[in-house]
């Protein structure tokens, strides 16, 4: 029992086990009053030998009154005219070992403390491995999501990402502008110069979109030559129109591909959500769609802002001739 104390009839330490002697920092333990050295935390209120003996055999919790206030669990039994108190470290074991620089020889051969320390450290090592694994899996998940939301040809977002972003904006009631853009004469480029030229044109067009928008905007290739720009906070119709026109101007710059000059343009339809979740996503997309068809009908290479008065009337959204002709040429 390297951590025992023998107390005399008045509660003074008559003898201390070798490990206990290591812990008695400062003046040492021998001859000192047990109740001055230690505070009994449980059972509460023990301050003399009579109290201690009243709880003989019971579970004790004690701590040093002096720093570092090491805590112990223990038990006291009568011995001769005094008492024998056997102590062990409780849950504060790691701290105590660090503070007092204890070695495994300082513990009784029957004491499981060293085994517990071993286990603690082994489990901590394994836990660290799990943590690393978790963080690797987390990054892999982020990368996979990123991939699942990206159009591989242009690097813009895909339709799935668009649904995700639009749902979130509408749900959170954020105002935003929506530009639905179709490339004009793209089919001709594809037919005349081949798919490689078409792919190149799409990439150049995507770059133009990145250039005229802000980093917080979501740029989507919604399909073939069809794009959707989602512009959070941008609900001023004139500014949206400006942006779309600047973009169309950029698209009309000739694009060189293997010695050929590819020429395209763009038609845009603009819709605005003023937030508050009043406009369902489908309605908004439909409005942008109608505005786009109006642009196409009016001769392409232009942008139209949706307005209820102009587009939500009885003859919209049909415009059958225009729609068919443009769809064929797009």
């Amino acid at each position: 029992m390297p951590m025992h104390l023998q107390l005399d009839a008045r509660g003074r330490v008559r003898h201390a086990g070798p490990t206990m002697r290591l812990l008695g920092s400062g003046g040492g333990l021998l001859g000192r009053d047990f109740f001055t050295l230690f505070r009994l935390r449980r059972p509460h209120g023990i301050s003399d030998m009579a109290g201690l003996m009243h709880h003989a055999g019971a579970r004790l919790q004690v701590r040093f009154r002096d720093p570092p206030h090491t805590q112990f669990k223990g038990v006291a039994v009568p011995a001769g005219d005094g008492a024998l108190v056997n102590l062990s470290f409780g849950i504060s074991i790691v701290e105590a070992i660090r503070t007092h620089d204890l070695k495994s020889r300082d513990f009784a051969p029957t004491d499981l403390t060293v085994e517990m320390l071993y286990l603690l450290e082994a489990k901590e090592t394994i836990l660290e491995e799990w943590r690393r694994l978790n963080s690797r899996l987390q990054s892999a998940r982020v990368a996979a999501e990123e991939q699942a939301f990206t159009d591989t040809l242009t690097g813009l977002r895909n339709r799935r990402a668009m649904d995700h972003v639009l749902d979130r904006l509408v749900r959170d009631g954020h105002p935003f502008g929506l530009v639905h853009l179709d490339l004009d004469f793209f089919k001709q480029v594809n037919d005349t110069f081949g798919h490689a030229a078409g792919d190149h044109v799409l990439q150049v067009a995507a770059r133009a979109m990145v250039d005229v928008t802000r980093s917080e905007d979501t740029l989507v290739r919604a399909g073939g030559d069809e794009f959707v720009l989602i512009l959070p906070g941008l609900v001023d119709a004139r500014r949206l129109e400006d942006l779309a026109c600047r973009l169309i101007e950029r698209l009309e710059e000739p694009i060189s591909f293997e010695g050929h000059q590819c020429r395209i343009s763009g038609s845009a339809g603009i819709a605005v959500s003023h937030g508050g979740g009043v406009q369902p996503v489908a309605v908004l997309l439909d409005q942008a769609d109608r505005a786009l068809y109006a642009s196409k009908k009016e001769g392409r290479g232009r942008a139209t802002v949706f307005s209820v008065e102009r587009h939500d009337t009885a003859h919209a959204p049909s415009l059958p001739d225009t729609v068919e002709k443009d769809a064929g040429n797009a």
Partner: peptide
């Protein structure tokens, strides 16, 4: 470093 420490728990 952890393995060395774990093995040193085997004895003094």
């Amino acid at each position: 470093g952890s393995l060395r420490r774990l093995l040193r728990f085997g004895g003094d």
